[in-house]
């Protein structure tokens, strides 16, 4: 039991400071930036446009294609090689799957909608920040969505269940270890669209962690909602 208080003094269910803005890239169909603590994600949506190569096309519905990219000096350690690698590919895929249940692209058969997620600065929780930004950018682009998607990492550090782990917590060294669980869900229905786990956790603790994620998700939704509305009401001044 070495971990008594959170390293940056937050309460266990408290997130880092969240801010969001929509419509930051003029040439994109929709765009958004989502910041949580020192993690910043920028998402830009382009399309729908023709999908090539042609065998990827789906005549039933449009295809969502996400691209997750960490910028070279965005993290704590060495320079990250930008572009595709195994980790980025996986995160791109889970991002697509996390957003797909909310999105309806039936009007765009054979076409593709591209979402580019760039991370200029990272301090853990990047896939969640990326999903939050992408969901706002897709709404801004005017696509049919039944709900917004919120995402947050919850987890266990030593024997404490905490929300929104930062890098220091994620790499905290203790006997019990750390479990890091990124969760994405539809904001209103609470339907879970992403659930991954890095580390050991008991079934009971996982249930509690998901409850915590739900609670924190509500706060994130309010920030997203505010940001989307501000794009239009803010100009009136």
């Amino acid at each position: 039991m070495t971990y008594k208080k959170r390293l940056d003094g937050r309460a266990v269910d408290e997130t880092r400071k969240i801010s969001a803005k929509v419509g930051i890239i003029k040439n994109a169909q929709g765009s958004a930036v989502f910041q949580i603590g020192a993690t910043t994600a920028i998402a830009a949506v382009y399309g729908p446009r023709e999908l090539h190569p042609k065998f990827l096309q789906n005549p039933d519905t449009g295809v969502l294609r996400c691209n997750y990219n960490m910028m070279p000096f965005s993290g704590h350690g060495e320079r990250v090689r930008p572009g595709q690698n195994r980790r980025a590919k996986e995160i791109s895929m889970v991002t697509e799957q996390a957003l797909a249940p909310a999105l309806n692209l039936k009007n765009f058969p054979n076409a593709v909608v591209d979402v580019f997620i760039e991370l200029p600065q990272t301090d853990a929780g990047t896939r969640c920040a990326g999903i939050c930004a992408a969901s706002m950018a897709l709404a801004d682009a005017g696509f049919e969505m039944k709900d917004l998607v919120v995402a947050i990492a919850v987890g266990r550090v030593d024997d404490h269940l905490v929300a929104d782990l930062n890098y220091d917590e994620e790499s905290y060294e203790c006997d019990a270890g750390v479990a890091d669980i990124p969760v994405a869900m539809l904001a209103n229905s609470g339907e879970i669209t992403l659930l991954q786990d890095d580390g050991d956790i008991t079934a009971q603790q996982l249930k509690e962690a998901l409850q915590l994620a739900k609670k924190v998700g509500k706060k994130i939704y309010e920030v997203q909602k505010q940001a989307l509305k501000e794009k239009f009401t803010g100009e009136e001044k």
Binding site: G47, D140, E144
Partner: peptide
């Protein structure tokens, strides 16, 4: 969705008697 009517997209609310619709502000 069950008891409630929800928005399907980003838009401006227009109410015509009992009918609720959205005017889209963006999209292709």
């Amino acid at each position: 969705n069950g008891e409630s009517i929800r928005a399907n997209r980003l838009g401006l609310v227009e109410i015509d008697g009992k009918v609720i619709k959205l005017v889209s502000l963006s999209g292709c």
